[in-house]
Amino acid sequence: MNLERYALWQPKAGNALDEYEDAFVLPRRARNGKPFVCAIADGATESLLSRQWAQVLTRQFARQWLAARDWRGWWNETLRVWQNEKRAYMERRARADKPVQWYEEPGLEAGAFAALLGLVLMPTPHALTWRAAAVGDCCLVQVRDDKLLAAFPMQDAHAFNNRPYLLSSNPARNDALAEQWRFAEGNFAAGDRIYVMTDALAAWFLRASEAGARPWDEADAHRNADAFAAWLAELRATRAIRNDDVTLIRLQYRG
């Protein structure tokens, strides 16, 4: 599969690298005739273990989404994996003699929260089909012939706010989950580009596109980590973009 791809990320300005709470999986190999799976997640600032939860979600999507019968099967397995992950974390804390503090208890009990968007590229005889699944405000944008062709699951810049429904590691917080999953699919033709982004960059991207600009060209002009960091610093300084962790996966099908 001739698929050009890269991912770029930056923590929120003022935060250390290890405070970055997004996560992504972008495989190095894209085998001919096989599905290609990638995923992006955004851990909520106001929850504990957000980064770890975002990592579990993306990893689980990449490993098991296609094998699961439906989202429920995948979700139950993901919660099981999380239980193990959390147990291991608590054991590490105990070993390091760092007992849980009173102010951590409510957050650990409430659970970790994150938005997830997973993407599968399915080969068909003459092209590729993309299928995406999402909960929350990570966003995919498809560009064809220099025009925005599709945005999913957020359709416009106004749809973003600070209170999205997110996947919680605590089953009691996922009451309405069945209604929160969003699914979409489309053709991925030769030359098409797909940008998968966490919310701050996605909101900027859609806003710029709505204003008649071509944000895909601007994003494409900053393809390495340093250029990307400098560009984001500029967008943040002019408050064109909200100061938040940022992650971008860019895919282009070369036919």
Binding site: A44, T45, E46, F113, R163, P164, R173
Partner: peptide
């Protein structure tokens, strides 16, 4: 108080 994303289901 707005210090970042707060899930609506929290």
């Amino acid at each position: 108080l707005d210090i970042g994303t707060r899930p609506s289901n929290l």
